[in-house]
């Protein structure tokens, strides 16, 4: 389990340093696969069938369909890279390290008595996803951040309660998938309308 936590954190930190969209998506695949393995792992001890189904869904949706959709979008965005992120890669990594500490603090204070490292890892995955959304300009990277948040939440649930009931889990997966499709459509439309997917140009509506 600890290996998986480290893997998750490693991918999360890696994404803080990436400026190429396709590379970020590839890292996301690795992370999602890690989440799937963790899911299977937690299911091994018990006879809970639904963890295996959830793991399979994670692989299919988060490591398969979502990256596929994102790759398709990215394929149309030829010259788009994260040129000047709002926080530079170094600063972002530093901030991510800080969030890791915050996550440990929070877990210690609010959720004592559980698998400390796993929880903190999941929570920091969630927070780093949020951080990516705040500090990156590219639409695709923001989507990646959003899915990282989802991964973090999923892991958190896994390490606390071995995952939500299956029916809810299914709903959540469905929502995430639709969300990525909707966001993909919007990203594509952004490219058509604004000639860029840099979301900092979206500042016309204010006040």
């Amino acid at each position: 389990m600890n290996v998986l936590t480290v893997l998750l954190l490693f991918t999360a930190f890696l994404i803080t340093r990436v400026s190429n969209l396709r590379l970020a998506i590839q890292i996301l695949i690795v992370q999602s696969l890690g989440v799937a393995v963790a899911c299977v792992w937690s299911g091994l001890g018990s006879e809970l069938m639904h963890t295996y189904i959830a793991a399979m869904l994670t692989v299919v949706i988060k490591a398969g369909m979502i990256p596929y959709a994102l790759f398709r979008v990215a394929a149309r965005l030829r010259n788009e890279t994260e040129n000047k992120p709002i926080l530079s890669p170094n600063q972002t990594s530093l901030a991510a390290a800080l969030l890791l500490a915050v996550a440990y603090g929070l877990v210690d204070q609010a959720l004592p008595g559980l698998g400390r490292d796993a929880l903190a890892g999941a929570l920091s995955g969630f927070l780093i996803g949020l951080l990516i959304m705040i500090t990156r300009r590219q639409a695709v990277l923001q989507i990646v951040g959003l899915i990282m948040m989802e991964n973090g939440i999923y892991l958190l649930g896994l390490s606390m309660t071995r995952g939500l009931p299956l029916i809810i889990e299914l709903g959540v997966f469905f929502d995430v998938m639709v969300a990525v499709i909707v966001l993909g459509i919007l990203t594509f439309r952004l490219k058509l309308s604004f000639m860029t997917t840099d979301t900092t140009v979206l500042q016309k509506l204010k006040g």
């Binding site: 949020l130 959304m133 705040i134 500090t135 923001q142 979206l202 500042q203 016309k204 204010k206």
Partner: peptide, 11 residues
Amino acid sequence: LQAGSVQLYVG
């Protein structure tokens, strides 16, 4: 406060 930036809002 309502400056128009998504990143700010998520922040």
